[in-house]
């Protein structure tokens, strides 16, 4: 394809092997070095081929043992690219490799986390969950199908990163932003809908007015459907913006639900 590959020591087979090894993903995650061990393990056979000299290999491995934490799917693009750099320039690329990893892991994680760990599971989970509650397993299989497809694509991301090498940032940057924005539009449309379809609790209070029993929930329904769920989401959003932790809020919601049920304020 280009001269880099002609001069390179890595064959297509080596690349496929490395791309498969990258699937050990975040299982090595720890608080000191992030997922550095994964990168070391994934690249070791390829690095062994690149560095004939043991001391150079040690230096290269030491470089990869530095803290690295990235969304594991998109990380494939980064480590694919650094592999190409090391193949081309050897141990001299050490600092460039470290800079590329440190520079891209943040933005890539931001994009990857939002799309594949938050939006996709939310959209697919809302579909699977609301169908599943009716006893319909279709949404569940759809969930698996989408993730299985993406699983296969992760290997291609690795090869893609390798072929791109250092040109990665310039070639990808703009399109990724457009893609994230487009996915956000999809995400927001669905989230707007699932507030009313998945957040589900009602006012259990009722009032006596001139001998007529008036249920509190029917009054609320007159104002707006799903008023309570919208209010709760709004309140929680505001609290998160104020810096409350998610686990704190989960516990608070459980306590409020229990008290609300005990005093007959809320029902399902």
């Amino acid at each position: 394809m280009n001269e880099k590959q002609k001069n390179g020591v890595l064959t297509k087979k080596d690349l496929i092997k490395t791309s498969i090894r990258h699937y050990i993903g975040i299982s090595t995650y720890n608080y000191d070095s992030g997922m550095a061990s994964t990168v070391v393990w994934e690249q070791f056979p390829a690095l062994r081929k690149i560095y004939k000299d043991d001391d150079e290999l040690v230096a290269a491995l030491d470089n990869h043992f530095k803290f690295y934490n990235c969304h594991p799917w998109l990380s494939a693009i980064i480590t694919g690219a650094t592999l190409a750099m090391e193949e081309k320039d050897g141990i001299e690329s050490k600092d460039a490799v470290q800079n590329l990893k440190a520079g891209l892991m943040g933005p890539f994680s931001g994009i990857g986390d939002t799309i594949t760990w938050v939006m996709l599971p939310t959209i697919l989970g809302a579909i699977a969950g609301s169908m599943g509650k009716q006893g319909n397993a279709f949404g569940m299989w759809l969930f698996v199908l989408v993730f299985a497809t993406l699983f296969v694509l992760r290997s291609y991301l690795y090869i893609f990163g390798y072929n791109q090498g250092v040109n990665l940032i310039t070639n990808l940057g703009d399109k990724l932003n457009a893609f994230t924005d487009a996915i956000s539009v999809l995400g927001l449309t669905v989230i707007g809908g699932i507030i009313s379809s998945t957040v589900n609790f009602k006012l259990a209070l009722s009032f006596n007015q001139g001998g007529v029993k008036l249920s509190g929930q029917s009054v609320l329904n007159e104002l707006m459907p799903s008023l309570l769920p919208v209010a709760l989401v709004g309140l929680l959003y505001w609290m998160m913006k104020k810096g409350f932790k998610m686990t704190t809020l989960i516990l608070a919601v459980i306590v409020i639900a229990m008290l609300g049920a005990a005093f007959g304020i809320f029902k399902v």
């Binding site: 939310t122 989230i191 699932i194 998945t198 589900n200 709760l232 989401v233 929680l236 989960i250 919601v253």
Partner: peptide, 11 residues
């Protein structure tokens, strides 16, 4: 019924 609201707000 309430807990999905935490996730949605987080999202």
């Amino acid at each position: 019924g309430m807990l999905p609201a935490v996730g949605i707000a987080m999202l």
